[in-house]
Amino acid sequence: MTQTFDEQFSKLFREIEIDLGATSLSILVLESLYKAVQGLKGQDHHHFFEQFQELTQNIESTEPKYAIIIDSFYHILRLAYVEEVIHPEQGWPLGKKKFLEQLESMIKEKKEEKQKIVKQSEKINFSGKNILLYHHSGTVEAVLAAAKKKRKKFNVIVAEQDPDKTGETIAFLHNKKIPFRVVPSHTISHIMDEIDMLFMGALTLKSSNDFVMDTGSNGLVLQFDHAKKPIYVFISTKKFSLWKSEKRSEVFTHTSQRQLHEKAISFERIKFSHDRVEMDLFTKIITEEGIFTPEQLKKFYDERLEERIKLEKRIELLR
């Protein structure tokens, strides 16, 4: 019963991400933070700054880490820092109003983010093409739904992966009346000639220049790279992990003992949570900030990372 905040947030975020996806989770987090700040009583600005730093530390310590949430918290932390350093004399009611306004605009922006990516995706021509889907992504679904709404003609081939995720993709395509076929992912090579391009979503981009994607993505992307077919990733830049990460240090493995049902053969079954896929393998990366080549995105990422490190250092000095 005595769970730490880190453990409580980890469990809660993971459960919500499984149910709703990372983007909806990040909106839910911002809405909850808005309500929490709104209901917070008996504060001065300094006390709030301290409490918010503690909360940010908890958010940074969840397993797995959610870059999209951490990014939002750093936006608020930046405002809290400015208020602490530049307007220390300012009373809490006024400060609280500023935080609420900031959160409100962030929620609005977050809700529009997907639409911005959809807008950018209009520059990709996929009319009359056969598109392969694998990684289950709400952003890719939004792009396809918008294209279908605009009466674009295209076909989808779904490469099977985790049954729940594949099932959700199938349900989406069925609901939107998008023509589709399903193929086991290990037999893709048999229909490679029919496929024109691969659409992927991603959980995050790491400082090691790898995208984190559903397991099995790496092999599939390598196959497409080998066949010289275009591979597109649709991801919000708010999902970027703006911290230094070790190669593969955050890919979680789950090992379990299993028995084959008819004969009693016990064996170890290893399951990985995600794949790391090199950014260089992708043709284009479509974000709300624009469409990038891997080279361009590396530059963009490095600038963002540097900015974040600077802010962290400034806040560290205040501690």
Partner: peptide, 15 residues
């Protein structure tokens, strides 16, 4: 009401 973390957690759970 004066604990930001507990308030935040509660609102997340309510959502």
């Amino acid at each position: 009401a004066s604990d930001l973390r507990k308030l935040f957690l509660s609102h997340m759970l309510i959502k």
